[in-house]
Simulated assay, not measured.
Amino acid sequence: MVIGSFPVGKLFVFGLKRASKPFGDLLMWMGKHHPFIRHYVIIPPAQLYNAFEVRSKMRMMRLKQPRRIPRLTPPIATRLGADMLSEAIVVAIGLGLIYYEVSKTFKNDQKKQRELEEQSRVLDERIDRISADMERQEQDINWLKATLKN
């Protein structure tokens, strides 16, 4: 794991995992005390994950795929679902932080680009003024030469 070489990153990941623990405990409590949340929010992802895990393990071992996968018991499914949802919260927080950093960098890059374009515009205007001055001075020189010849 690359993050191991960065102590601050390791500390940050550890902090996120510690922060997800109360969410998991809250989901466990809600799963025990609120049947609607248990049956429609917590248990279905756990059962889906269990089916996916069993099928993928059977496929890796090159065994015959079962027609019906036994469902997890409600307490096990509740614990697994709560853990999965708390990990999903950690991933969402991490993705949110990544999005924030990327958007901040993008805005800074746009600001620098606008500043460079403004500097380029100012330099172009200076060059145009210098060119106009040179043309006017060249006309004056030609007029003086013509006047001196007469």
Rank of each mutant, 00 (worst) to 15 (best):
Q113T: 10
R59P: 00
R62S: 14
I93F: 03
M58R: 12
K107S: 07
V54G: 08
G96P: 00
D83L: 15
S86E: 01
R68L: 15
R67T: 04
I98D: 12
A77F: 12
K64D: 04
L85P: 04
E115R: 08
K104E: 11
R71W: 04
R62E: 12
K64R: 13
M58Q: 04
A77Y: 07
S103Y: 07
V54M: 14
N108G: 05
S103M: 09
V54D: 10
K57E: 02
L63R: 12
L97T: 01
P45R: 03
A46H: 12
Y49W: 15
A88Y: 06
K107C: 02
P45N: 01
A92C: 05
R71D: 07
P45V: 02
F106M: 14
P66T: 05
Y49I: 11
E115Q: 08
L72G: 08
E101M: 05
I76Y: 06
K57P: 00
E87S: 15
L48P: 01
R68G: 03
M58F: 13
P75Y: 02
Q113R: 08
Y49P: 01
F52A: 13
M84I: 09
R114I: 13
A82G: 14
L85A: 03
M61N: 03
L63P: 00
A46V: 11
F106S: 10
K57Y: 00
I76M: 09
E115S: 01
G94D: 06
R71E: 12
A46C: 10
G94R: 07
K112M: 12
P70Q: 08
L48Y: 12
I89R: 04
P75R: 05
G96W: 01
F106A: 14
E101I: 08
R59H: 13
T105C: 04
G96N: 04
P74E: 12
E115H: 04
A77G: 09
F52G: 07
E115Y: 00
I93R: 00
R79F: 10
K107P: 01
I69V: 15
I89T: 05
L48V: 15
R55W: 15
K64W: 05
T73H: 11
L116Q: 15
L63Y: 11
A77N: 06
P45S: 08
L48N: 14
Q65Y: 03
E53N: 07
V90Q: 13
V54R: 09
A51V: 13
Y49F: 15
Q47L: 13
Q47I: 14
E87Y: 12
D83S: 09
I93G: 00
E53V: 06
I98C: 10
A46T: 11
L48D: 06
Q47F: 13
N108D: 07
E87A: 09
M60E: 13
A51E: 15
N50L: 02
